[in-house]
């Protein structure tokens, strides 16, 4: 694990998301109503909708383009839809959001 500090939880709106650019592509960092954080690919597998612009509800996000819903724990599409987004280790340390640089590096290698 190689934790990288990417910002403070207050920089992400409650029940919202922000984008993080990485050399392996864009990652969305989500903050739920319970102040949990999740990180996942920003790109919807359906037609590339930016998931960081979706509505965050419970521990899920709805894609802004055509309403596919993803579970942020597993990255799996919900309901009748099929699809999967990669998720990444992320944690909170006293309000700071830490992303695992190693997991990102693995992604670019893959």
């Amino acid at each position: 694990m190689n934790w990288i500090d990417i910002g403070h939880i207050d920089d992400v709106p409650l029940r919202g998301a922000r984008l993080v650019k990485t050399s392996a592509g864009c990652i969305a960092v989500f903050r739920t109503g319970k102040d949990e954080v999740f990180a996942a690919s920003d790109t919807c597998p359906h037609k590339g909708g930016p998931l960081s612009e979706g509505i965050v509800h419970g521990q899920k996000v709805t894609c802004p383009l055509h309403n596919m819903v993803f579970d942020l724990n597993t990255g799996a599409a919900q309901g009748a839809d099929e699809g999967q987004i990669p998720t990444y280790p992320v944690r909170l340390d006293g309000g700071r959001i830490l992303l695992d640089g190693d997991a990102l590096a693995n992604r670019s290698a893959a």
Binding site: I4, I6, G7, D11, V12, P13, R18, L19, V20, K21, T22, S23, A24, C26, V29, L99, G101, L104, A105, S108
Partner: peptide
Amino acid sequence: RRFQPLADLTLEAA
């Protein structure tokens, strides 16, 4: 500020 990415790690991850 909120319209910019929260962070840009393109350099670090490389």
